[in-house]
Amino acid sequence: MPMSEVARPRQDVVAARNQISLFSLFKTFLTIGAISFGGGVVAYIREYVVRGEQWMDDEEFLDALEVGQTLPGLIAVNLSVIIGDRIRGAAGALAAAVAILLPGTIVVMTAGVLYVGNRQNPAVNHFLGGVAAAAVGLLTAVALQLGHKQLVHIRDFLIVMATFVAISLLHRSLITVILVIGPIAVFLYHPTTHRSGRIKPAKTREPIPLAGHR
């Protein structure tokens, strides 16, 4: 698989990566999966992979993130697959994806079994009701911070509005919306669409704002 000129890691980095064992890759993503409470898993991955283990620099991390958030799926899981693949190929991708999901699966299933057994308990209902309300505050903050960083053009806002209106007010199916608005949005950003031929870059490449810790 040929790598492009831009994203090619340095030879010494590649050599160093071959020294990283599948086990330590698994262990690191397992740790991230176990401590990333409160969402913002991407920030934890960056903390561990870039700052802690120094398996890649920030530039390569942000490249991976751009791909991971464009493709369908949970961004943290996509990112784990990409990072695992860059470090140890297919086995690395599998190890990272399983490791990031395993601790949360154990906790969520334990809580889920307890919930299903106690779902008529008013205390459980009241507690989970407050959790959901707090989550609304969290989701709004994440969406607005992300929007603040990524929405540059009036065109961006129109696409956001069209998407929101189609899903939330007109109750169109997600597939329809993606198949209709997606190609239009991509077309609007193709350089030939603009006379200048250049697209104003996003304000920053720091896409994910909220994390449990810095």
Binding site: V6, G147, T163, I167
Partner: peptide, 30 residues
């Protein structure tokens, strides 16, 4: 992701990444 690397710097790749970002934010808001 493996194929994506070949299109580094391609206007289509940039257009997809930039164009889908506001769609994603609209979906998050929904």
């Amino acid at each position: 992701n493996r194929v994506w690397k070949r299109f580094e710097g391609s206007p289509w790749r940039t257009a997809i990444q930039r164009g889908m970002a506001p769609v994603a934010i609209g979906l998050m808001l929904s």
